[in-house]
Computed example of a mutant assay.
Amino acid sequence: MKTARQAARERRRRRRLLLGTTWALAAAGVLAYMVMGVFPGGGANAGSAAGTPSASQVRAAGSAEARAAATSASPTTTGTPTPKAAATKPSARPSAKDTPHSGRTASTTAAPAGRIRPNTTYTGVATAYAAGDGNGACLFGPSDDLMIAAMNTTDYETSRACGAYVLVHAANGASVTVRITNECPLPCAPGQLDLSQQAFAKLADLKVGRLPITWQLVSPGTAGTMSIRYKTGSSPYWCGIQVIGHRNPVARLEVRTSGGWRQLPRTDYNYFVSADGAGCGGSIRVTDIYGEQLTVSGIALRPDVVQPTQVQFARH
């Protein structure tokens, strides 16, 4: 039989055991709840997370689709052959090392279209002016050959007509070939040629004043080789380049730079200008209206000096 003291100890031991069990059960429940919250089963939440793209995924996919659509809709600029790429193709064009002065290459581009075109007849009137020493707006300089003319402003087309040879026909059957060296400002109308008095006299008496004519571009067989001239004031920081003595009208002039060929803009005083000096003193590539390209090297940066080349555009 237990004593009162033993009975009290037994009660205290049962209470501690019951309290410990209760705390253990409570802790297990809390832990189970936390595990379920952090690691959910393969239910709806898991399916939603896998099936719905994030905002960054939507933007990336949209960008890819846009790029794909743009690519299929039109070619990019990088897909267009550049002059530098074209120069690497096998061709008849000699390199600067092979030809120290100049070279010729076949046409690589379509002939640039201007107002004056091959195989086209133009109608207008001829007038006459005192040509003096033959110099004019094209700034070619004095000329011993005064079979020259001034082109009306419209067809002059920012000096594009400079150096062109045109065959002029009068209604009386007379004809004369003249070289464009000047501009005839308004009121000269489109189609009008202001001939030197010497050239006009080949068609009619100067007293006629105005003479109905037709004319067309020609490519003469007697032209020598062409020359290059740098404008007064040219330097490695700015330069103007002019082509002289070309058989066919010049449509484009490019200079070789560290980044490849660079086309220069043409002025109304018949020079092609590199405003930042790029390419000044380097190789020059000239293209006529038929698309033929002539590459010239070895031209020194010497202002106002006519430097001959060894090339000329082909006759057409």
Rank of each mutant, 00 (worst) to 15 (best):
S63F: 12
G42M: 14
A8G: 08
R229T: 03
A96R: 07
T154M: 03
Q192N: 12
L301T: 06
A55I: 07
L186I: 11
T181H: 09
A199P: 00
G282S: 11
A113L: 13
A46R: 10
T108P: 00
V311L: 07
L193V: 01
A204K: 05
A204W: 07
R13L: 13
L18W: 10
R315P: 05
T222K: 07
I148W: 01
R252I: 13
L25F: 08
T78M: 12
T88D: 15
A24M: 08
R16Y: 09
L203D: 00
Y156I: 00
P236E: 08
I289S: 05
S274F: 00
Y230W: 11
A300G: 11
A113P: 04
A149L: 07
D145S: 13
S91D: 10
T52Y: 11
A199C: 01
D276Y: 06
G260A: 06
L146A: 06
G20Q: 12
G114M: 06
T158D: 13
S219G: 08
A86I: 13
L17Y: 09
P81N: 04
W215T: 00
T214R: 04
A199V: 03
P81A: 14
C184P: 02
L146E: 05
R229V: 01
L17I: 12
S196N: 00
S95T: 14
T120F: 06
C138T: 00
S63C: 09
Y271N: 05
Y271V: 14
P220E: 01
R9D: 11
P75D: 10
A199S: 03
G224L: 02
N248F: 03
Q263S: 15
H101T: 10
G221T: 04
T80R: 15
V286K: 00
R93G: 08
G79A: 10
I241P: 04
Y237D: 15
T222Y: 10
I284W: 02
Y290A: 10
G163H: 02
S175H: 09
W261C: 01
P40I: 08
A28R: 05
D205V: 05
N248D: 14
K2W: 15
D205E: 12
S91A: 12
S235F: 08
G224N: 08
P83R: 06
M36E: 14
C138D: 02
A60L: 07
E65I: 14
P100F: 11
T158G: 11
A110G: 14
G132D: 02
L19Y: 11
L294V: 09
G191N: 03
T295D: 06
A204D: 07
T105K: 11
W23A: 14
T88I: 08
L264C: 04
S63Q: 15
V296A: 03
L253Q: 02
G163R: 01
G51T: 13
A32N: 06
G173W: 09
L139V: 10
R13E: 13
R5W: 15
S175L: 05
V296K: 00
A126G: 06
A96F: 02
A60N: 10
W23V: 10
R12K: 15
T123W: 07
L31C: 13
G103I: 00
G136K: 03
A8R: 13
S143V: 01
C239Q: 00
A130L: 08
N119W: 07
M36T: 13
A223S: 14
S54E: 06
R302N: 15
G209V: 01
S54V: 02
A68H: 05
Y237K: 15
G103E: 04
